[in-house]
Amino acid sequence: MASSTPASASAPERPQSLAQAVLSGGTSAALRVAQVVRRYPFPCLMALVLLLIGLGSGLADLVAPADPLAINPRERLFGPTTTYIMGTDALGRDVFTRVLYGGRASLGVSIASVGIAIGISTFVGLVSGAVSGWLDVLVQRIVDVLMAFPGLIIVISLTAFLGNSVGLLIVVIAIALLGAGIRVARAAAIQVSSQPYIEAARTLGAGQARIIGRHILPNAMPPILVIATAQLGIAILIEASVSFLGYGIQPPAASWGFMLGAEARIHMIEQPWLSVWPGLAIFLTVFSFNIIGDALRDAFDPRLRGA
């Protein structure tokens, strides 16, 4: 779609978007933050929520009130109490603690797989979009194959035969995300390549590598950043589905998906809270990523505002 032009690449006489104003500096840091918050109150709130989830999960060792694996048969299947703010599971483990540790697993897997996917797809997409010719045709065919790749299904098939390895989970989720990533990066590269300043750089004698690295890459960044944010949410959902089916992160380690799986389903009638918390955690995280992604797109491309 023509509408995904990176705004930061276009002529300076257009009124500056807030994102540009923020990036170009000129105001104090505090003022900039205030501006962003005023322009995007809800996305900022969701960013804060995400930050809390991220910190809580990342620092689970320090923050968690209990041991995620400590079993306490006498206090099993509690609802929320003052001691156990999210209650306890069938083995009497603290659910809040397990949600924190589960977040560490889910976020870790999704950040790692999106990192790999975006790194590769940026490189491949930009080169293919900028160089064109037979290489581009080949890449497009590969993207076709990757887009038809039923991610979730291949992830469970492979983890089932490989034994469950977190590394494998990360790699396969990354493969499932590659197609869309390459597509976006390539489209951005094609868009940027047609700009006069690329021609100018070429006239000045810049080589292909320099043009891609110094000129196309920075200007193609906005759409790539937007898709990366969206993919963080998708990766969380894939990981959760796989773990829900029991083929992802293995018990007794906690993960959001697994907590909703067999663990919660058996005791759902007895203790419905068990299936509320991890689901809510997944929902909030994915929701935040989506809202932030929308706001980023909005900030990078004012023409799409509200689109």
């Binding site: 949410g233 998906g257 909703l260 759902m268 009638i269 419905p272 299936s275 689901g279 929902f283």
Partner: peptide
């Protein structure tokens, strides 16, 4: 909302 809700969660809740 629909984008962020895990399908398996919704389905499990509905069944139970």
């Amino acid at each position: 909302f629909a984008l962020a809700i895990p399908g398996f969660w919704l389905a499990t809740l509905a069944v139970v």
